[in-house]
């Protein structure tokens, strides 16, 4: 089994996406596990989008918007914070560790911060995967039976 986690990063066009671009321009490495989905604003992120990412196999989901106070659409990032909090509750009810979903604030000029955040989040998800593999989950038991 491929044990590299899949991470979906919903990034705001005006900040985190630009920061990701800048990280590239600055030749800052960040893990290839990340798949970036560009949104016009982090406030565009919807709980359905987040849930769907997990349903389709994401091991971690990042939502990255501007710093509080500097949203291009004034309040979009604050809305994203609330949606991520609600989505955490929804995924937890469905048995997914809510720590696999996180909101970040990264300004357009912070290429290195983007790279570091991507790196740290990926490592964190790998750690959660390793811990989950140790604990005999219901899924593991069922897989064992059907094998």
């Amino acid at each position: 089994m491929d044990n590299e986690p899949n991470i979906i990063a919903f990034c705001c066009h005006y900040c985190a996406f630009t920061a990701a671009d800048l990280a590239g321009t600055m030749r800052q490495q960040y893990p290839p596990n990340l798949r970036i989905v560009r949104l016009p604003c982090s406030g565009k992120v919807d709980v359905n989008l987040i849930l769907q990412a997990f349903v389709e196999g994401a091991d971690g989901v990042m939502v990255a918007g501007c710093e509080i106070g500097s949203c291009h659409f004034i309040e979009g990032n604050k809305r994203a914070v609330k949606r991520v909090a609600y989505a955490k509750k929804l995924v937890e009810e469905a048995g997914v560790n809510p720590a696999r979903l996180e909101m970040f604030h990264i300004a357009a000029s912070q290429g290195p911060l983007f790279a570091r955040t991507a790196h740290e989040f990926t490592e964190y998800i790998k750690k959660l995967d390793a811990e989950a593999a140790e604990v005999p989950l219901a899924t593991a038991a069922v897989d064992g039976e059907s094998a």
């Binding site: 769907q52 929804l90 469905a94 048995g95 899924t139």
Partner: peptide, 12 residues
């Protein structure tokens, strides 16, 4: 529907 899909997968 998404929540049910995740939970069913988790619980087998």
């Amino acid at each position: 529907a998404n929540q049910l899909a995740l939970a069913a997968r988790d619980r087998g």
